[in-house]
Amino acid sequence: MAKTYDYLFKLLLIGDSGVGKTSILFRFSEDAFNISFISTIGIDFKIRTIDLDGKKVKLQIWDTAGQERFRTITTAYYRGSMGIMLVYDVTNEKSFENIKNWIRNIEENASADVEKMILGNKCDLDAKRQVSKERGEQLAVEYQIKFVETSAKDSLNVEYAFYTLARDIKAKMEKKQEASNPAGARSGTHQLRDERPKPTSWLARCSVL
């Protein structure tokens, strides 16, 4: 199968349960919002290919599969991720405070140069707001991470957030490539696929002798 993209980025969604990670994922990948998607059953990752400066960028966006609920994200989840969306809920103070813990978790487990962005989700629920936009901005400045408030429900800034994160990763990648070492250290690894090559040909080979 011909490669239908120029870049493949693995992105993660991180944050407390119920902040709307799955809704953001669905808004971006399916342009859908379903209030009944409260937990994350059956969602592994979603894919959307976007166009950035004439390049096809395939975004593979991974959801936590509910493993964040009791702080039990696997270390394997972070492997190979190039960008992380840190999500909190503007109507939930605790989820905002926990962003710092999630950042610590990322520093512990993800690669050091992973791109990050903070999203304050559910900004449509202004009446229930507990975290002001200013506090979100302040936190982002503290960690030098980009920040935006989003609403998966109203489809506000979700597109912008993913495009911004993807653009930052692409820029970083191209800068690295310019500084030589284009292949990177990850070449030579295998993802196992059901490619079913011919069975061992020891017998056939032996007959050559």
Binding site: K46, D51, S155
Partner: peptide
Amino acid sequence: DDVTHGPEFRGDEGDKE
């Protein structure tokens, strides 16, 4: 089902291969 669509996106490519 159960899906409510948001406003149309700007002309991006399909989200599936």
